[in-house]
Design a protein around this nucleic acid. Sequence first.
DNA 1: CCCTTGACCTGGAGTTGCTCCAGGGAGCTA
DNA 2: TAGCTCCCTGGAGCAACTCCAGGTCAAGGG
Lengths: 120, 120
Amino acid sequence: MLISEASVRSGLSADTIRYYEKSGIVPAIDRGADGLRRFSPENVEWLTLLYWLRKTGMSMKDMQRFAALYREGGRTVSERKALLLGHAEALKRKRADLDRREEVLAEKLAIYDKLEGQRP
Amino acid sequence: MLISEASVRSGLSADTIRYYEKSGIVPAIDRGADGLRRFSPENVEWLTLLYWLRKTGMSMKDMQRFAALYREGGRTVSERKALLLGHAEALKRKRADLDRREEVLAEKLAIYDKLEGQRP
DNA sequence: CCCTTGACCTGGAGTTGCTCCAGGGAGCTA
DNA sequence: TAGCTCCCTGGAGCAACTCCAGGTCAAGGG
């Protein structure tokens, strides 16, 4: 399939897919005789995984590491798992952080509200 | 107080404070005879509020709008409130999003885990 | 009195993770 | 033959900082 379809299926924009290819976190995609990229279903699966890793805040650097490990083959599985596990934990911490921030902000705003309210 | 102290108290780095001043979301800070910025407690309060707005994901653009409204004085209070309310709602949506993403990622990873497990 | 140290200053370059655009080509349709 | 759609590349632009070079100034030590 062409890049537009791969884009719709993975959730990544065409620009982002090309950017990811350039950055080496997506393997070089096969080209047709016309020079256009042809994506395999496996390519799209990989893109989709990247989409979700990115959406949950994984950095390009970590995605690059992950991709490099993947290219190295089956013997890097445990390392990959560790990386993903680390990511999952970072996510949890992030959410806890967000909760805390929301609270603090609410406090700040309550104070602000009172100050503002003094001259209605 | 000097910028280093304002930095510690507000949570923003000195560089960020200078950047915010340049961008107009912090008023021009008074200078001493030595040319160094002298922050008033009010300055620091403002910086701290910005710190939390930023931490909770408010964009520079919105902070600029907020600051502009503030400079316009008391008659913009309701607009400011609306802006902050909108921000609070965006935050909520953001957290819901994050939750959803976490779920989807967990699914993806479970699948990935199974695939990987096939060749141990 | 000179020299070093430390905090601060400015302007500008670098970073991340895209996004957009100019300029160009290939293939289909009418 | 033109117009349309889709794709290509290289490079510029963006947000929100962060870092750095090169310079100023005051206080403290020898």
